[in-house]
Design a protein around this nucleic acid. Sequence first.
DNA 1: TCTGGGGTCCTAGGACCC
DNA 2: TCTGGGGTCCTAGGACCC
Length: 421
Amino acid sequence: MKPIIALVDCNSFFVSCERVFQPHLEGKPVIVLSSNDGCAIARSSEAKALGIQMGAPLFKIQDIIKKGHVKVISSNFSLYGDMSSRVMETLRQFSPSLEIYSIDEAFLNLSLVPEKDLFSYACLIRKIVKLWTGIPVSIGIGPTKTLAKVANHLAKKHSSGCCVLLRPDEINTALRQLSLQDIWGIGPQWSKKLSHLGLKTASDLAQTDPHKIRKIFNVVLSRTALELKGIPCLSLEEISPPKKNLISSRSFGIPVTSFEILRQAVSFHASSLAQKLRQQQSLTCALNVFIHTNRFQKGETYYSNACVIPLPFPSQDTAALIKAAISGLEKIFKNGSFYKKTGVTALQIYSAEKVPHSLFQNKEEIEKRKSLLKAFDKLNAQFGRGSVIFASEGFHKTWRPKACLKSPSFTQEWNQLPRVK
DNA sequence: TCTGGGGTCCTAGGACCC
DNA sequence: TCTGGGGTCCTAGGACCC
């Protein structure tokens, strides 16, 4: 059977989530900021029209914001995560196989839908998602993931919000009008290198010999070229594999100089990693701890350092991870610096099932710790993250990133539920 | 004053093994 | 002058994604 893949992409997702609970923002320019209120990471179409670029630092767009009366909102990731689950669950109604690609995108296998019905089916999906979740989406359909991405690019420009790209003549026309940097998998570096080779459009790349691409670039780009030709190289991954690396890091709301505050932040990150490890039933063998000062600060020496701490035993235990992370911090902390950010990465992650217990570990003790952490996770799941914490995280989080313009957690906190008058 | 957080894959080169 | 052949594992760096 010929594969048919749909890419469903939520329009300006974070902005749309905010609009569901603040309908007065509809039709107005709105942006959502990154952590610490740093950059614009989501823009409504009205904000894009004003010239606000993706990733633009807030302080550089203050003029546009003022003149264009742009509504600025701090990010609220627990709200977006919750809304994302609602969208994905709705999409499951429409296909037996679905790959959740990111917080706001999913690939659907639509091979069972007759070709003539695809467009109206896409329109139906779009209508139901909007009705059930309040989130507007665009849907692109093609014979490969990369062509579904291309179709989605076109769908966003179309009033129907849907686009089917299956006939060779339609695909060719679309590819001739698509520039290299708009292709999924081609970033600024490769598009520059490709244009030096005389290639200008997606159609040029599709017509180039993939072996030649592989020689000059690598296998990844040669796959992209094949996918543009309609030859599937990327399969639908319905079950997301466990993460091979996990990271927890944040910039500080204010510069931090004290070791004690850094210790609290590092403990928070180690604890957050341990929870993620337990969630995906993995163990880590080593942590990487890093700190750095503000690299944009003129007149101050930039200091950045990191160190890897092997754990005595593979672990997912919060206490063990906190202990290791703090010992790493002690090695790299330099007195007198104004720190801007810290974080912890879990390296060498293995499935908990596959790692045997060490002879030097007390089995009883391990079981006791396991049930303690299970209760810990259960409480946090029931009463909200951070309801129970390890004391070394501290209770005040003075290092917390800035989020001055955050909207209420409409769907996760009882006391912040929207009121209907 | 103010510049995010969290991932993936591939390749080349070095260390080491028999 | 000429210095084996074949393999694994790890790491750093570079590209990409949302």
